[in-house]
Amino acid sequence: MRRAIVTGTATVSGVVLLLGLKPHSDTPLAAKGANNNFTITQSGAQGGGQPSSAPSSSSASGSSGSSGSSGTSGSSGSSGTSGSSSGSSSQPGSAPSSSASGSAPATGSKTVTGDAADTRYGPVQLAVTFSGKKITQIQVLEYPTETGRDQEINTYAIPQLNQEAMSAQSANIDGVSGATYTSEGYQQSLQSAIDKAGA
């Protein structure tokens, strides 16, 4: 039964990072379309260790990330500046920024990149960090940004979904009503990451 999924699987203790998007951005996104990835990685992760974590983030260019951060739920979700973003895991026992740079295996933490899910609004792709079977972090690598509408939606929906994925278990929530749209690609990509991790 490896088809575990968001609602119900993630035993997560720390709520993590999330996105630093500003609620209303009137600046059009720089690189429209194709590879306009909004990448957030753990600060230490790029240094060496963690091979699987996503295309390097440095060029997340002028996109809305510059507008400062909105950490959620008391966690250390400082994903502020564009490009070199930093979000440190709030999971107590596992890999805070430092340990990621060396060899990761000590803590058994690994990051798996989910398949890019094609939605009719554009691709959605996540990278999911596991500590054992726990999801400790979800990074959104790519999401639809074609229009201002998309941005607005994703500003809302992605953190919502992250929250949902992370908190589902602790709150014992079996399903969510009212989150419809971006969830398609999000859940699809999350599922594929969970499948790959064998968690």
């Binding site: 079996d174 969510v176 009503s177």
Partner: peptide, 24 residues
């Protein structure tokens, strides 16, 4: 069953425990 944010529940997830649904 959840389809695009709409939910249909049947029975219960555990003995004596109802399904819990979050409203976004």
């Amino acid at each position: 069953i959840v389809g695009g944010g709409d939910v249909q529940a049947h029975g219960e997830p555990g003995l004596g425990r109802p399904w819990t649904v979050g409203i976004a």
